[in-house]
Structures are given as structure tokens and as C-alpha cells.
Design a protein around this nucleic acid. Structure first.
Ligand code: FES
Ligand code: FES
Lengths: 142, 142
DNA sequence: ATAAATTGCTACCTTTTTGTAGTAATTAAT
DNA sequence: ATTAATTACTACAAAAAGGTAGCAATTTAT
């Protein structure tokens, strides 16, 4: 399962904004480009602005802009903001705590894989995605 | 989020059965040991037996036994059976397909991390967990 | 001023996931 | 045979996630 649909939406939106070289994005545009349900997306965008990733401006010609430089926003931060700080630090076998001092039978192997994933997500910023897009490395839907 | 609660329950149950050296396990025992809601667990156990991981026997002194040798059941198989075959092969940005020929901006990095996780989960069997437990490497709840 | 284009908010609806209750079927012990 | 211990099944309830609708507030263009 990995991520909730809402989190995927958030990543999708922010990655889209990062790769297109446009200052402001209206919800309606994002809705049309990314096919995320209109009203649900509106709520998500408000949420993302409350969480400090983007800034909203109301009124005609309003929309959403990044709140800080894209290179300071990494993927792990976005996931954490939407799924809760340590949604990734859970025990694979579903025990309440996943701590090295009290490991389940999967702990060592799992903790290692997991930390690699987190490392990758942490070192990748929206700025990196932007660069990739400009270098035409990406041919997909985004 | 990573796994649904139900999948965690399944892993927890099967890992428990693998580590204790007992032939048959009644639902009631598993419920008490693992604190999984009684009726929900019952349904899950029936499901796991339909999926070929365990075999159920009804009646007095009935319960659940492994359907095949523990060393032939790996963690990835269990996850796949509960979450759907390629729940792990999704695009991190939520696009419908995640295929190398049509990559999104996250694809390369993500695909690499992901395949390492899958490799770990695939090469770890319930037999491995059992051994670990017997070597007292595990001190946790399991 | 007025209208148009936008976000903010609230209330509701639908679907999926998780959890509960009760009854039927099966087996073993007595 | 009867009872006790177990799984199987069905239907429902509660909670969480995802989605919809409509109106209020704000800003810009005219
Ligand atoms: S305790 Fe289970 S993965 Fe860490
Ligand atoms: S296409 Fe997005 S991760 Fe593969």
C-alpha cells in the first residue's frame, strides 16, 4: 500500500508545480492536468498551504505559489506532513513500537531497508525533480 | 502507511506461529497472545487458510497449522496475498502505471529503493524468522 | 459599483476498512 | 447421546478515507 491516495495526490501536485516553470497555479488548472477530484484537491491545497509548503492568494488571478525554495523541500517532508511524522517508522509486524532495543523477528532486515528508503526520499528535493524534468529525463505523465 | 492493519495482523500471526514451536494454534490463543480483535482474527485466519498458508481443522482440539513448510513462505508472498499482487509496484506520485518506459520524475530513485525492499521481503522466509527466534536474537513482543 | 475568478469553509455523502455479534457446522471427549 | 471446544458463515455496526456541493470571502478587471 505504501502511501495513502491523499499523499500521492500531494506529491503529484507539488511535483507538477516544481517541474513546470510557472509561478502561480490555480486549483482548476491542477485539477485538469492531474485529474484529481476538484473539491478534494481544493481542500488538499488549503492543507498544503497551512502546512507551509505553498502560499495561497485569493481573488481573481489568485492561486498557489511555493512558500520556500523548491530545493529546500524534500519528499520525506511532504510524506511526513501528510501521514504523520513517523508513519514510516512502524514495525512491519504491527507491534506498537519499533525500537532497536526491543526488536521483533523482522526488525533488523526491515530497519535496514526502511532506512535506505527514507534516505532516498530525504535526499530528493522538489528542486531535483525540477532539474530532471528540464533535462528531459522524464517522459511520463508528470 | 506502508501496510494495512490487516496485513500487519497477518504477518504478526504467521510470524508468531513460525517462532513458537507448536503444531496447532487455536484462534483463541492467537487472539490472547497478539491482542488482535477476536472475530476479526477469526475471519483473517479463515482467509489465510483459503489462500493456502495454513490449514484449518474444525471441532474440539482443532485450530490452524502451516499448510507447507515455513521455509517456503516468504514475507513478500504474504503481503502480496493480502494487498494484491503488485500493491508494491505503484508509482510514488500516484500515476496509474509505474513502468520504466514511461517514468515520472521520481521513478528511477524510487524504483531502486523499492526493488531493494522487495528483495529483502522476498528472501526472508518464515523459516528464517523461526531460526532467529530460537537463537534468542529477538527480545521484542513477538 | 459590478461582475468574474479565485480560495476558504462547512456540511454532507459514499466507499473502504476495521470491528462485533450471533448462529451453524464439525469434531472429540465423556 | 450429550457436551464442550472449536472453525465457518452471515449480517451488521463503527470508523476512516475519499469525494461532492454550495455558499462565503477576497481580489482584480471592467
Ligand atoms: S520491532 Fe518490528 S520492525 Fe522493528
Ligand atoms: S512512474 Fe512514478 S515511480 Fe515509476
Amino acid at each position: 500500500m505504501i502511501l495513502s491516495r491523499t499523499t500521492e495526490y500531494a506529491l503529484s501536485v507539488l511535483a507538477f508545480m516544481a517541474t513546470r516553470n510557472q509561478k502561480m497555479y490555480a486549483a482548476e488548472l491542477l485539477h485538469q492536468e492531474l485529474k484529481i477530484p476538484r473539491q478534494y484537491l481544493r481542500r488538499l491545497l488549503t492543507d498544503l498551504s497551512k502546512k507551509g509548503f505553498i502560499i495561497s492568494t485569493r481573488g481573481r488571478s489568485g492561486g498557489f505559489v511555493f512558500a520556500r525554495d523548491m530545493s529546500t523541500i524534500n519528499i520525506a517532508q511532504i510524506i511526513d506532513a501528510l501521514e504523520g511524522a513517523d508513519a514510516m517508522n512502524t514495525c512491519l509486524l504491527g507491534f506498537t513500537a519499533c525500537i532497536a532495543g526491543h526488536p521483533c523477528a523482522m526488525h533488523d532486515l526491515w530497519a535496514e531497508s526502511r532506512s535506505k528508503v527514507i534516505e532516498t526520499l530525504t535526499k530528493t528535493t522538489l528542486g531535483d525533480l525540477s532539474e530532471k524534468y528540464r533535462k528531459d529525463i522524464v517522459t511520463g505523465c508528470l
